[in-house]
Design a protein around this nucleic acid. Sequence first.
DNA 1: ACAGCCATGTAACTCGTTACATGATTAC
DNA 2: GTAATCATGTAACGAGTTACATGGCTGT
Lengths: 193, 193
Amino acid sequence: MSQDIPVTGYAILGLLTFGDELTGYEIKQRADVTLRFYWVSPAMSQIYTELRRLTDHGLVRADARQEGGREVTSYAITEDGQAALRAWMDGTPAGFPVLKHTVLLRLLIGHATEPEQTRAMLHDYLAELDAARADLGEVREALRGADQPGDPFRFPSLVADWGLDYFAAESRHARRALDSLGETDADPDEATA
Amino acid sequence: MSQDIPVTGYAILGLLTFGDELTGYEIKQRADVTLRFYWVSPAMSQIYTELRRLTDHGLVRADARQEGGREVTSYAITEDGQAALRAWMDGTPAGFPVLKHTVLLRLLIGHATEPEQTRAMLHDYLAELDAARADLGEVREALRGADQPGDPFRFPSLVADWGLDYFAAESRHARRALDSLGETDADPDEATA
DNA sequence: ACAGCCATGTAACTCGTTACATGATTAC
DNA sequence: GTAATCATGTAACGAGTTACATGGCTGT
């Protein structure tokens, strides 16, 4: 079989298992509300590149049609695509998640700058975490009603809940670090888990 | 000033702020017990490439000496390096951490395979988390005694504690997902935070 | 009329990886 | 004597990014 598909390719393939035909543009939008939180939201160009590769491998079917004056191409997963995705999930180990945690990296070498700089960074991070939590929370709410066993969004819901708790945990950790750095402001901003 | 240094370059620069002169090989070892958990442990070749770049920019000083029959080069951060690191930390936003969470990615599309496959993946993840926690825990213990305000390993300790809690939280989330997937095994494996 | 979104792609480039190559020192 | 560790690098390559280019359609 074809073994030369990057993880992002499988991620896109995965997005196409939720039933609909999607254009590259739509895939990007879906990725922005799902993949973005746990993987990465690929650049448009990357998505088109990947779709090309998947098409060449016969894992997706490209459906070109005329829409107004322009040509629009939708993609759907094929039988082979289903099989390839399945083979990937069952046959290759998931591997340990990789964190590219710029905040922790900087905290690690906090002695190289002023304490207030580090505190400011952590405050910024808290604000961004709140925004991320709000974004993901909206997504999660949109899945309500189809999140039970057997429902189409069962797994996305599980993942969203995991992500929300992860963000909540990060908030706690950031606050603890701030405390430890001698700040007892006591933001009245409480957690979920 | 020089703006074209990748984050990994600054990470290496950061490792050199802890006092000693290090060889590329030693930097790799340090990275394996620190950076690995929150950033990435660069390949040897990448480290040498980066050291070359940092040297060219005058941010580190290469100290070549003869040790036995072979030439060994140690690197130390320069004044300019300190300044560049500081400028990076104070002048560029940390940005939001990126998660390359292969486990969550697969869980997201869990409907594409058998439930037991997904459960097995989560069990594997739990085992890997335990191993990671043990590794990082050892590192954290090694920092005891120099982890108070003003001590050299203050910040590394903060980061290690954060990381340990992160792993603990991930364990909880994985267990919760397992529960939700209809498994009430009740591993007697309890968390920290 | 113009901005913003929908939609698709190409080109150049960078980060980082794996594979390869070399050789000395240390431990068993 | 031989395996593991220390130590340094080059070459080929791949994934993914930004910048660039194009153009239609939609709302104000």
